[in-house]
């Protein structure tokens, strides 16, 4: 028989089993995976992924996402340009989906992750009312949806491939895909135990 403080219990990130936090070199008792080994540098890995993602997001917005090659003349459109074009044509729902997936989701994810990473290090006063576990849950939930634009470009490039009209994926597609992957990695690298530790 032994008594455990419930604050010392942590979930395994892989199998969700409840484990006792032994402060260093935690391995899950059920599946044997490591539970956040890097106690001395808790947020650095997540920061590194997040900054990489933000850097990738810049060319993703500056370069064309999709090139339309019509009878030899090429015209490209950036993410924002594509949204404006759709809006101009009256395709409001699609314009909104792309706006949500390619602009709103990535930027809100950057902001929320940055907020989480800053707040676990330097808790600001009065911010305890925000349930940061819910913020994290939300970032995980909306994260993959920003891949929509990359998939759309891939589908269009595969479909419209004629001699007269061609749709080609632009440089921004690579940058954008990288940005999404790195934000997902940043979210996965975030140690949720830190949230409670600072409460």
């Amino acid at each position: 028989m032994c008594v455990i403080d419930t604050d010392d219990l942590i979930p395994c990130p892989v199998c969700e089993a409840v484990n006792i936090d032994k402060k260093k070199n935690n391995t899950c008792r059920r599946c044997g995976s490591a539970i956040h080994h890097h106690r001395s540098t808790p947020t650095e890995k997540s920061w590194a992924f997040l900054i990489t993602a933000i850097i990738c997001y810049i060319p993703a917005n500056l370069y064309p996402m999709m090139l339309v090659d019509q009878f030899g003349s090429e015209s490209g459109s950036t993410i924002m340009g594509g949204i404006m074009e759709l809006w101009g044509h009256g395709d409001y729902p699609i314009a909104l989906i792309i706006l949500l997936a390619s602009i709103f989701v990535p930027i809100s994810k950057f902001l929320m992750l940055a907020y989480l990473l800053v707040s676990v290090r330097d808790p600001l006063r009065g911010e305890i009312r925000v349930n940061r576990h819910k913020v994290y849950y939300f970032t995980e939930l909306i994260g993959p949806w920003s891949m929509v634009d990359v998939f759309v470009v891939g589908i269009l490039a595969g479909l419209v491939h004629l001699n007269s009209v061609k749709i080609i994926a632009g440089t921004a597609a690579t940058a954008f895909a990288l940005s999404v992957i790195f934000t997902l990695l940043a979210a996965h690298a975030f140690d949720t135990k830190l949230i409670r530790g600072n409460r």
Partner: peptide, 15 residues
């Protein structure tokens, strides 16, 4: 505080 007999009894808890 919670009381458990051994570590495996934590399987009855969920986070």
């Amino acid at each position: 505080k919670i009381r458990v007999k051994n570590e495996d009894e934590l399987d009855h808890y969920i986070i």
